[in-house]
Amino acid sequence: MSTPLLTVSHLEKSYQKTHILHDISFDLDAGEVLTLLGPSGSGKSTLLRCLNGLEAFQAGTLTFAGEVITQKAKQWQQLRQQIGMVFQSYDLFPNRTVLENILLGPLKVQKRSRETVLPEVEKLLQQVGMRDYRDAYPRQLSGGQKQRIAIVRALALKPRLMLFDEVTASLDPEMVRDVLTIIRQLADTHQMTMLVVTHEMDFAQQISDQVLFLADGRIQEQTPGPQFFKRPQTSRAQNFLASMDF
């Protein structure tokens, strides 16, 4: 068996005295989609943020592509080019056009040439249906459009792993589907490795290879996607699914 792309082992996270994550361990293979599910406050987003260095963790080991993550700022800065992240609040840079938002990473961080990057970016924009908006400013876009651009901005760095943190949580219902379709395409046609935090259960069911169910900062169960939605192993997960009207 090949080594996993990401290995999390015995990760512990606390803020001052509050323990947020307890003994989190799991593997993520290349090409796999792992969904983090669980009630609010269960630590899903915090876990995702630990995997991108936006939150420090106190104990445990992260290994990405065989490299042990030491939590040094310099190492995170390098790794973030391979671990893309998309946020609930899109957070495009308001003073930059769509194209500039997308190009900053590849051109300034990765020092690639505009001639090689531009065709890739145009292709990505085309795939998300935003080719005509390259010169627009974020203020001229709807929430769903902004989120699609945020996804392209992350993809432009050619990451090996994508983290999606409740990316549809602040979108109108009709826009949710567009964004989720893009993420699903990313999984289906590009075999992108992904970690997804979501409250969209239909989407989670369609996309998940594995489900990690968290509650109270602990992994309650890790189950293959189809099985989780049919027969969750723990009563916490059963109650959770029932409460989600699913």
């Binding site: 991108n52 260095g53 936006l54 700022a73 995170w76 800065q77 390098q78 973030r80 080019q81 893309g84 992240m85 946020f87 609040s89 957070d91 495009l92 840079f93 900053l104 990473g105 300034k108 961080v109 990765q110 945020a150 901005r153 992350a154 760095l157």
Partner: peptide, 18 residues
């Protein structure tokens, strides 16, 4: 400046200076 804007910058690999 909102914290999330800074995190968005960090997430695309910006150095401190960038």
């Amino acid at each position: 400046i909102t914290k999330s804007q800074i995190e968005a910058g960090q997430a695309i690999g910006f150095t401190r200076w960038q």
